[in-house]
Design a protein around this nucleic acid. Sequence first.
DNA 1: GTCTATATTGTGATAGAC
DNA 2: GTCTATCACAATATAGAC
Lengths: 223, 223
Amino acid sequence: MIKKNAAKVGQQRDGETEQRILEAARTVFVRSGTSGARMQEIAEEAGVNQALLHYYFRSKEGLSQAVFRDAAGKMFPAILRTLGSDLSVDEKIDALVETYLDNVSRTPYLPGYILSELHYHPERITQVLGNITGTPEGGHIPETVRPLFDKLDRQLAEEARAGRMRKINSQQFVVNLLSLCVFPFAARPMLRAVLGLDDDAFARFIKERRKELPQYIRNAMRP
Amino acid sequence: MIKKNAAKVGQQRDGETEQRILEAARTVFVRSGTSGARMQEIAEEAGVNQALLHYYFRSKEGLSQAVFRDAAGKMFPAILRTLGSDLSVDEKIDALVETYLDNVSRTPYLPGYILSELHYHPERITQVLGNITGTPEGGHIPETVRPLFDKLDRQLAEEARAGRMRKINSQQFVVNLLSLCVFPFAARPMLRAVLGLDDDAFARFIKERRKELPQYIRNAMRP
DNA sequence: GTCTATATTGTGATAGAC
DNA sequence: GTCTATCACAATATAGAC
């Protein structure tokens, strides 16, 4: 109901400007971190004035939360959905490795940003992950996620009982899976410096991983 | 030759004050990140005045570099030494998992700090890792580290030839190893929130990992 | 070496015109 | 909705006494 007269000079229809600001903010926050980023830098990146950032997002805190929420909203739901699905264990491994590596390859600096944010602002996890996991206000996330891990535990137990896998608990299983997928991106600057991987070489490195990782992980749990 | 008359009031002998400042800085930088940290906060943590930080380290930049150099100097050399040693592949796996998990358990927030620093200040990698790896001024780190990976590649090729392992290249091998060791610490705040792991539960989680990881990794490469 | 006081710049945020 | 101008304070850094 608000934005009428969109034809008037200097006005943009819809949330176009807001969106441009949000994307600029993502770029800058991902590059410099929440405290390292400057509102001025974001304004320039978006091609607008600094005051406009405050008009749309009120404060730096508000803007950075919006960015983090978006970023986390891209990564976590997909992972949780896969882990909680009705796929078999083997299929979950395949699905997670493929979708994660494919998706993140397009935004390779996101994992580093997210892990850093979680490290320096752990209080944000609850806010953001609470929504994502559907945890009620003031609730405890682990309780909401519990059913997912319980289900995984049953699947893993059944595989072990049938002699198809060694016994492993769901937490270690998930952490192993995530470690092998996420770490190479989070440590990308290190790999670039130590192994000399430029953008192309890194992309090839990930492509190779995408092929070998499922086999690697399944093998690791053979009886 | 400088510090005489150490008995005089207000003076400390040796680098005691400098050391206290450095430790305080480590605490604060690891907790808040380089740009998030405040010199005032560090001064308080060290129990000295803010001007003293500049007396010893000239600038915030200087202090943060000193902290990062120390932190990286704790992690990387041990890893590189193990990987480049004369141990067999199996022994390297054991050694790296054990020493890494044991050492880092004492400073569990260091990996998150180091990865974040590398993400937001990739230029520091060259400065610091150059020294650690013994790369000459202006040299390229990968060339210095190359022999280490070449040696690993020969070992892995020999294992494959003898039918004891599947073929895997040294880069993927090392990244897998590091992923499984480092990620749980780097993602600790996330694991705390999602899995509900408090300090004790996390310590147990790592202890279990220390036991199972070598077997997991060896298994993953079985033919 | 260590302190207090202060200079100086950076930076988030707001007021108000258009 | 978007801009320019400016405020208010935070934060690094330095001067100089002790």
